[in-house]
């Protein structure tokens, strides 16, 4: 009888364990997750201490002064990291142009690991959606913002709280999430 009880106990425990592990593995499969992506979170607030530090793009206004950058920004604002060498950035560029035109003074661009000359050429030929733009030459802003790759876009409320971040180009699902987040930030 003792053996039978033990056997039953092991069966029940085993069944519970199998169900739990199975659910976990199922979760790993079924959700729209890419395990290679670094987890990003809006609960982590970017550090603005070096915001505005960087090199001006030749032919563009010099914003390498915090006051100048912030002055152009009242209310909610968006920070977008891009690079002229970055192919996915070109996918979201048309939308950025549209967004920049519709929301003057709200979109700040930071060129990540980019030669200022190349970045300037890119913005001159493809159009400049940004109200203010700088080359983040020493990548300090990138690290301060917890950047996980370019392009990456951050939506801030008027008081500088991070509301939303898009860890990829603003197309498809990320674009509609961004539009919703921006609408919410306006309120």
């Amino acid at each position: 009888m003792n053996t039978n009880f033990l056997r039953m106990a092991i069966f029940v425990l085993g069944a519970v364990a199998i169900v739990l592990v199975g659910t976990l593995l199922w979760f790993g499969l079924s959700s729209q997750r890419n395990p290679a992506d670094f987890p990003t979170s809006t609960s982590i607030q970017p550090d603005f201490s070096a915001f505005g530090q960087g090199r001006a793009l030749p032919g563009f206004e010099d914003f390498s002064d915090i006051a100048a950058v912030r002055a152009g920004v009242e209310g909610p604002f968006v920070v977008n990291f891009f690079a002229s060498w970055c192919q996915p950035c070109r996918l979201e560029h048309p939308y950025l142009l549209e967004f920049g035109a519709a929301n003057p003074g709200r979109l700040i661009g930071l060129a990540y690991r980019d030669d200022p000359i190349n970045a300037a050429t890119y913005l001159t030929t493809d159009g400049n959606p940004y109200a203010a733009v700088l080359a983040d030459t020493d990548s300090l802003n990138a690290l301060n913002f917890g950047l996980t790759g370019v392009p990456e876009t951050y939506v801030f409320s008027a008081d500088g709280n991070l509301l939303f971040r898009s860890p990829g180009p603003l197309i498809g699902a990320l674009k509609s999430q961004f539009i919703d987040a921006w609408a919410a930030a306006q309120k």
Binding site: G22, L25, G28, L29, P35
Partner: peptide
Amino acid sequence: LLTSVHAFAVDPSRGVFIL
């Protein structure tokens, strides 16, 4: 299922079958 430098072509339906 897990992050790895050994990237392989991934297809969830296959995963379900082996699971």
